[in-house]
């Protein structure tokens, strides 16, 4: 399985980079922790959102993890832009790595950062009283979901990087994609509460499926929807990998 081996090498590269510089992991955790520690309890105190008997902070914890994953992944394109500006991408193109492996491998690297982020957020959530299902298999399942979903968003980011060649424009576009997806998902409130148009949009919003999968594995334990969520995430990933692989030609010009 060469393609798999290629992805493993890219993942190893990312692990080694993280090992030498952990500071970014901690600074990136600030924003999600604020959502958990400030937004969660304040909104929860209003009791305005029907969460099906789950404490509000518990309800949004998966949403916060997924949001953090989405941001890390969408900004992974910055790494790709840097690798393009330096000679790294050129050099990778002249190795036996197939181009699709470069795209998927670089995308899955962001999954490494996202799973580490989750490993930081979950203990903090537990500290402030969020009840995570104490089943290691469920937890590993949630980690795997975050890892795989991250690849899809990173692929979007590779696609944007192929169109936007400057960092500044890239930052703006990244925000403009993730925030609407986040607010139009079930991360902060159940889909049932949304106006009909948003509800319809939510059903094609990949974030909703990812949040639902992580919520079922970490908080509710209700796995009825999980297979459908996984299918949706797989379709999302594959579609984004294909788009990113096609657009990759533009990056290297």
């Amino acid at each position: 399985m060469t393609p798999l081996r290629d992805v493993v090498v890219m993942v190893e590269l990312e692990l080694r980079r993280i090992r030498h510089d952990r500071a970014e992991l901690y600074t990136r955790a600030v924003q999600p922790v604020l959502w958990l520690v400030v937004f969660g309890p304040v909104m929860g105190a209003l009791r305005a959102i029907p969460t099906g008997g789950i404490p509000y902070t518990d309800f949004i914890t998966p949403g916060i993890i997924v949001q953090s994953m989405a941001f890390i992944s969408i900004f992974f394109g910055l790494t790709v832009i840097w690798e393009r500006e330096s000679g790294i991408l050129k050099k990778l193109l002249v190795t036996p790595l197939p181009r699709s492996s470069i795209v998927i491998g670089r995308s899955m690297s962001s999954g490494v950062r996202s799973t580490f982020q989750m490993l930081i957020i979950v203990p903090i959530a537990m500290l402030i009283g969020v009840r995570i299902i104490p089943n290691p298999l469920y937890f590993l399942g949630a980690l795997a979901i975050i890892f795989l979903a991250s690849g899809g968003f990173a692929a979007i980011s590779v696609f944007i990087a192929s169109i936007m060649k400057s960092r500044e424009r890239f930052m703006g576009i990244g925000q403009a994609i993730i925030m609407p997806l986040f607010f139009a998902s079930n991360a902060l409130y159940p889909v049932e509460m949304m106006p009909p148009i948003l509800k319809a949009l939510s059903s094609v919003n990949p974030l909703s499926y990812i949040v639902d999968a992580v919520r079922s594995l970490l908080i509710t334990g209700d796995l009825a929807q999980l297979p459908m969520d996984i299918v949706a995430i797989a379709i999302f990933d594959i579609a984004m990998f294909i788009i990113a692989s096609i657009s990759f030609k533009r990056i290297i010009k």
Binding site: L13, R17, E85, S86, G87, I88, K90, K91, V94
Partner: peptide, 9 residues
């Protein structure tokens, strides 16, 4: 191949 720009991490 060694490109003109820096090509190591």
């Amino acid at each position: 191949y060694v490109p003109q720009e820096m090509s190591v991490w």
